[in-house]
């Protein structure tokens, strides 16, 4: 069912953008050597210079740190926390939502109860408290913790909404005639859930995944803003936070906050583009023919019409 998925123009673009940021995140150290500045190196000769001056391609911050270098090293923290927390959230949400919708009964009642309890929790406040507690436990003066832990804390409070979503959708899918037909063929439960029912949920899953990545990146930025940091690691969130607290907005140093903002927006776009492709997978009716072939056909037809006239 995924044939043609990778040949879709939009999917290609989305994956290219996403791949670019993953590349930056993975090979950040090498790229930093190319840039020539470290993310925390201070250039006293170039405080808050606009892009292009003094060898700073994207300008500098108020303390003379290179924005491009920060952007590169920030990619790792933001991408990792965002993606990991989203994966955790969607994983838990899909597992609990789909299974309780599918199996029903007492299992469903219990799981639904847990979901509801988690839903009513003030998740951000709890994340903050837990994060603060854990980072404080790291030792006196240390308010740092690993980004994996940060991602876990964000993800663990993000799944209930997805679980409810997917449970409701699974309930309607389970009762369809074709689901009954699959069962009456003697199909195993696992294949029924994963091969037959789950593809129908892919549209929702991918859309919520996109939202979860963005939410993860923003939550990380928010936690940084409130003083729970990931051990001096620079992320796009910390960049935006610093830009805001140090007056970049009012003083018009746009390069400082627009660049990380754009990076986040690009990832969102990439996810949306991949999403369109997934939509065509989950709804075969959207599938159009090869655009080039269609254009060729249309052109030929027009030509034939012109000749007939």
């Amino acid at each position: 069912m995924f044939e043609g998925f990778l040949r879709n123009r939009r999917v290609q673009t989305g994956l290219a953008i996403f791949g670019f940021f993953v590349f930056v995140a993975v090979f950040g150290d090498l790229l930093l050597k190319l840039v020539g500045f470290g993310p925390l190196d201070v250039d006293y000769d170039a405080l808050h210079t606009p892009p292009g001056h003094g060898g700073h391609l994207l300008g500098t911050t108020i303390s003379g740190q290179d924005v491009l270098a920060q952007l590169i090293s920030g990619a790792r923290g933001s991408m990792a926390v965002g993606t990991l927390s989203a994966l955790l959230a969607i994983g838990l949400g899909a597992l609990i939502g789909v299974s309780s919708g599918f199996f029903g009964g007492i299992y469903d009642t219990i799981m639904n109860g847990i979901t509801n309890v988690f839903m009513t929790m003030p998740s951000f406040a709890l994340t903050l408290i837990a994060a603060g507690y854990i980072s404080a436990a790291g030792g006196p003066g240390s308010n740092a913790m690993g980004w994996a832990l940060m991602a876990f804390l964000i993800g663990i409070f993000e799944w209930p909404g997805m679980a409810r979503y997917l449970r409701a959708q699974t309930l309607t899918l389970r009762g369809r005639d074709w689901a009954m037909a699959t069962k009456l063929l003697g199909e195993s439960r696992w294949r029924m859930v994963f091969s037959e029912v789950f593809p129908h949920l892919l549209g929702i899953v991918s859309a919520t995944f996109l939202r979860a990545i963005m939410a993860g990146i923003l939550a990380e930025a928010g936690l940084n803003f409130l003083g729970v940091s990931t051990g001096g690691v620079i992320s796009w969130g910390t960049m935006i936070t610093n830009a805001q607290t140090q007056g970049a907005l009012t003083l018009g140093w746009w390069w400082w906050f627009i660049t990380p903002g754009l990076a986040i927006a690009f990832i969102g776009t990439a996810a949306a583009l991949v999403n369109f492709g997934l939509d065509e997978v989950t709804n075969p009716k959207l599938r159009t023919g090869n655009t080039r072939a269609v254009n060729k056909f249309n052109k030929a037809q027009r030509k034939a019409a012109a000749v007939a006239d």
Binding site: M1, R176, W178, L185, G186, T282
Partner: peptide
């Protein structure tokens, strides 16, 4: 159940609902 369904099959009333549209 699998052994049972190897011998007994159901034909559905609504052909528009009984086929998985993604497959």
């Amino acid at each position: 159940a699998k052994d049972y369904y190897a011998q007994v099959q159901l034909l559905f009333q609504d052909p528009f609902a009984s086929l998985n549209s993604l497959k």
